[in-house]
C-alpha cells in the first residue's frame, strides 16, 4: 500500500476513491455487456455493427479506468452481480430478449448514460488531478453516445408520441427505480456489492462530494434528456417525483 500513502491524504480518501473507480468500472462493464447482448439479439446488420462498436467503446472506458486504478494502487472491486447493477442488467436483458432495440437504447443511452455523464463529471471535478482528466474525457465520450441516441429517440417519438411516451414511462419505472434506489441517501435495497466495506455514500464528504448533489445533477441531466427527446415536462416531473428516495 505504498502508493496509497504517497497519493492520498487519508485512508478515507483512498477508500472512497477506490469505491468510485469500482463503480465506474463495473458500470462500464455492464454497458459493454449490454451492447454485446444487443449485437447478438438484433437482426439489422447496421445496428449489429453499431452495437459491437459501442460495446468496444465501453470496454475501452473500463480499461482506461482499470489502468489508472492500478497505477494508483486502488482497491478495486468489480462485481457485475452486485445487486443494483445486476437488476439493471436483468431489466436490459428482458427488453433485449424481446428484440426491443428502442427500449435497450433508452436504458443504456439515456438512463445509464445520464448517470454516468453526470457522476463522472462531478467525481472527476472532486477528485482532481489526473483522475479529473480521465473522468471528464470519458464523460465527454458518453455525452456523444447520449446525444446520438437522443436524436434517434426524437424521431421515434415523432412517429407515434402517445405510444412512445407510454413505453418510455414503463421503462422509466422499471429501470430508473433501480438507479434511484441505488443513488438514494442510503442504499434502499441493501449493500450494492461493489463498495468496499460500508457504502461509500457515507464517505463522499472526504472528497467534497455529497449524495444529494450527485443524485440531483444526475436526475437533472436525465430530465433534460427527456425534455430534448420531447417528453412533456409535466409528465417527466411526475415520473421523477415518484421514484423512491
Amino acid at each position: 500500500m505504498e502508493t496509497q500513502e504517497k497519493e492520498f491524504k487519508s485512508i478515507e480518501v483512498f477508500n472512497v476513491t477506490s469505491d468510485i473507480y469500482s463503480q465506474a468500472i463495473t458500470g462500464e462493464l455492464i454497458g459493454m455487456s449490454n451492447f454485446a447482448t444487443l449485437a447478438e439479439t438484433i437482426d439489422d446488420p447496421h445496428e449489429k455493427m453499431e452495437a459491437v462498436e459501442h460495446a468496444d467503446s465501453e470496454r475501452r472506458h473500463a480499461e482506461g479506468f482499470m489502468a489508472y486504478a492500478k497505477k494508483l494502487g486502488l482497491n478495486v472491486n468489480i462485481n457485475l452481480k452486485g445487486s443494483y447493477w445486476n437488476r439493471i442488467r436483468e431489466q436490459f436483458l428482458n427488453y433485449a430478449a424481446k428484440k426491443d432495440f428502442i427500449a435497450c437504447i433508452i436504458i443504456q443511452e439515456v438512463m445509464l448514460e445520464a448517470f454516468a455523464i453526470s457522476m463522472y463529471t462531478d467525481a472527476g471535478n472532486a477528485l482532481g488531478g489526473a483522475s479529473k482528466k480521465l473522468f471528464l474525457s470519458i464523460a465527454e465520450e458518453e455525452k456523444e453516445h447520449m446525444d446520438h441516441s437522443v436524436e434517434l429517440l426524437q424521431e421515434e417519438l415523432h412517429k407515434d408520441p402517445d405510444t412512445f411516451i407510454k413505453k418510455f414511462e414503463g421503462i422509466h419505472f422499471n429501470c430508473m427505480t433501480i438507479l434511484s434506489e441505488f443513488s438514494a441517501r442510503t442504499d434502499l435495497k441493501g449493500h450494492c456489492g461493489v463498495c468496499n466495506g460500508d457504502c461509500m455514500k457515507n464517505a463522499l464528504h472526504h472528497v467534497n462530494l455529497n449524495v444529494d448533489s450527485l443524485r440531483g445533477n444526475a436526475l437533472a441531466l436525465y430530465a433534460k434528456a427527456l425534455d430534448t427527446i420531447g417528453i412533456p415536462g409535466e409528465k417527466s416531473i411526475v415520473w421523477i417525483a415518484k421514484l423512491p428516495a
Binding site: F173, R185, S213, A223, A241, K242, L243
Partner: peptide
C-alpha cells in the same frame, strides 16, 4: 401500473433535489 396522471405530484419526495430540476411545465390551465 396506475397512470401517473391520476395521482398528485409528490413534490415532498423531491425536496432534496428540488432545485436541481430543470424548469418545466407542471400543469395546463
Amino acid at each position: 401500473m396506475r397512470t401517473s396522471e391520476l395521482e398528485e405530484l409528490p413534490i415532498s419526495k423531491i425536496k432534496a433535489i428540488y432545485d436541481y430540476i430543470p424548469p418545466r411545465g407542471i400543469f395546463k390551465m
